[in-house]
Amino acid sequence: MSTTTFDRSTTGQTRVGDRKAVVHRMVMPKHLCPFGLKSVDLLKRAGFEIEDHWLTTREETDAFKAEHGVKTTPQTFIDGRRVGGYDDLRRHLGRAVADPKAVTYKPVFAIFAMAALMALAASWAAFGTLATGRAAEWFVAIAMCLLAVQKLRDVEGFSNMFLGYDLLAQRWVRYAYLYPFGEALAGVLMIAGALTWISIPVAFFLGTVGAFSVFKAVYIDKRELRCACVGGDSNVPLGFVSLTENLMMVGMALWMALRMV
Rank of each mutant, 00 (worst) to 15 (best):
M1P: 10
S2A: 14
F6K: 07
T10G: 00
T10I: 12
T14W: 01
G17D: 15
V22Y: 07
H24T: 01
V27N: 13
P29E: 08
H31K: 14
L32H: 13
F35G: 04
S39Y: 00
V40K: 10
V40Y: 02
V40L: 12
D41V: 02
D41M: 02
L42S: 10
L42A: 12
K44Y: 06
G47F: 06
F48Y: 15
I50A: 08
I50T: 14
D52M: 08
W54E: 13
T57S: 15
D62G: 00
D62E: 15
A66D: 13
G80N: 06
R81H: 13
R81A: 14
V83T: 09
V83L: 07
V83I: 15
Y86I: 11
D87R: 06
L89H: 03
R90W: 00
R90C: 12
R91V: 09
A96L: 03
A96Q: 09
Y105R: 11
Y105M: 12
V108S: 12
A110Y: 11
A110I: 14
A110T: 14
I111P: 02
A113W: 02
A113N: 05
A115L: 08
A115F: 09
A119G: 07
L120H: 00
A121N: 05
S123G: 15
W124V: 13
W124D: 08
W124Y: 13
A125V: 13
F127Q: 12
R134D: 11
R134G: 02
A135Y: 03
A136V: 15
F139E: 09
I142N: 05
M144A: 13
C145H: 00
V149Q: 06
Q150V: 04
Q150P: 01
K151N: 09
K151A: 06
K151M: 13
L152N: 05
D154K: 03
V155H: 03
F162M: 12
L163N: 13
L167Y: 04
A169I: 08
A169Y: 11
Q170L: 05
W172M: 15
V173E: 15
A176I: 01
L178N: 02
L185N: 02
L185R: 00
L185H: 02
V188M: 10
L189H: 01
M190W: 11
I191L: 13
I200T: 10
P201E: 06
P201L: 05
V202I: 15
L206P: 03
L206W: 02
V209M: 13
F212R: 06
F212H: 00
V218S: 04
I220P: 05
D221G: 04
E224F: 02
A228H: 08
A228I: 07
G231N: 11
D233S: 14
N235L: 09
P237G: 09
V241T: 12
T244W: 11
M249E: 08
V250N: 04
G251W: 03
A253W: 02
A253P: 02
L254N: 01
W255V: 05
M256S: 08
L258H: 07
M260D: 08
M260V: 10
